[in-house]
Design a protein around this nucleic acid. Structure first.
Lengths: 230, 230
DNA sequence: TTAGACTCCGTACTATAGTACGGGGTCAAT
DNA sequence: ATTGACCCCGTACTATAGTACGGAGTCTAA
């Protein structure tokens, strides 16, 4: 393989600009390249291209140039203090593991979002934040319904039914989303939302909540409540 | 749970500065907080704290504020076409997968470095670059059994399963990388790569692609395909 | 040997993501 | 009512990571 290329060729191969290579050189991220004489052109080999690619990759993964420099300077030389290098490498590995775990978290949240969106998914994950929180706080109120309605025998219970006309739903998934979200409001016994009828029917305890509160909860999610009747 | 705190409390909880919150607000990353009157103090709830934490996390993982805003705006609700949100979420998930694969790659390289270091053994992997390169270049072409079967689904669409033996993978990250890359090829329905079995199983439409094309895609990434079905 | 492409170097400029400042307003406790 | 801590807003400054510029030097092929 032709080892030896000008700066522009190396830049092209690594997918960066010429100036970027010079910049990395100044920052000490890549060593001073070979040069025929002082003032002559720099010459690069594939190793440097590899190194630059690694730098870019590291940046995409959220490492700063300083951190990348640290990674690059980890070398298993005889002569360098192995224990020290090892310690550093282990701590870097921990950081990498942390990042992987966080990404897996986000990935799972996206999965949930994808499952929720096109209608059919019954989970109440409207945004990634919800989806991420949902998987931290264990599913306390799954739409299984039984547990949610368990502790109602304490007081003499009034039960009221509110019917809202809702605009802004785009699919059955939206209806499911609203159901889930309304169900988290205090005092709500049952929520049935129909996408087709553009209507929400909510069974709730008027001592724990009110039509206004429920409507506000629905509006907060970005839907508009056109009319409310009890 | 105390819902309602001043900006400094929210900043403290989220682990950022007060100015940062105002900055995110200006950038539209967090919504305008509730305020008693115009000119009054902002009031935040835990949701916002959660959101800010998510932003910071995203940054540590190499997402820009713009990208994070995109992630945050993915919501299964009105205003946006559900199909579109889904598409975006899927593409974000792909990006997350790519990052995870790269990190697993780096992780494996660090492992190698750690393993190499303290022993006085042969030090072939001196730096991470070496360790990373080492897991791409391996070249051991040895033909083994080729398995391919043609399937006809109920719709009459041709679906073929190709199984490749792959050499050169050094960790699970490599397997994820190949999966991701093969999935971008036209006509590919599903790609499953096992690091342990050194095997790729690809479900594809033979009218849109071919075994040769798929194998070429894998080779292009630096792995070697030991056997390929026809 | 000369034109044209490429490279050298230092310096200046840009984008992103905050951080700091300062003159004033708000709030809760004394 | 006053004080002191906190907050408001706009603007200015900083760090990181490049990018661009421009005049001069280098290479190479005709």
């Amino acid at each position: 393989m032709a080892t030896g290329m000008t700066i522009s060729r190396a830049a092209e191969r690594a997918g960066v600009g010429v100036e970027t290579i010079r910049f990395y050189e100044r920052r000490g991220l890549i060593e001073q390249p070979v040069r025929p004489r002082t003032g002559g052109y720099r010459f690069y080999d594939n190793e440097v291209v590899e190194r630059i690619r690694f730098i870019r990759q590291g940046q995409e993964l959220g490492f700063s140039l300083r951190e990348i420099a640290e990674l690059l300077s980890l070398r298993a030389d005889p002569g360098a203090d192995c224990g020290d290098v090892r310690t550093q490498a282990v701590s870097k590995r921990e950081e990498v593991d942390r990042k992987i775990a966080q990404l897996q978290h986000i990935r799972a949240a996206l999965d949930e979002l994808i499952a929720t969106c096109p209608g059919g998914g019954a989970l109440r994950a409207c945004t990634i934040i919800d989806a991420m929180a949902g998987r931290r706080v264990t599913q306390a109120l799954r739409p299984s319904g039984k547990i949610a309605r368990q502790n109602r025998t304490t007081k003499g219970r009034d039960v009221k039914t509110a019917t809202f006309k809702i605009d802004g739903m785009h699919c059955d998934g939206c209806a499911r989303t609203i159901e889930a979200l309304v169900s988290t409001e205090p005092g709500v016994r049952k929520a049935t939302v129909s996408f087709k009828a553009r209507e929400a029917r909510i069974l709730f305890d008027p001592q724990a909540s009110s039509e206004d509160q429920l409507a506000a909860a629905i509006r907060k999610a970005g839907y508009s409540v056109a009319s409310q009747s009890s």
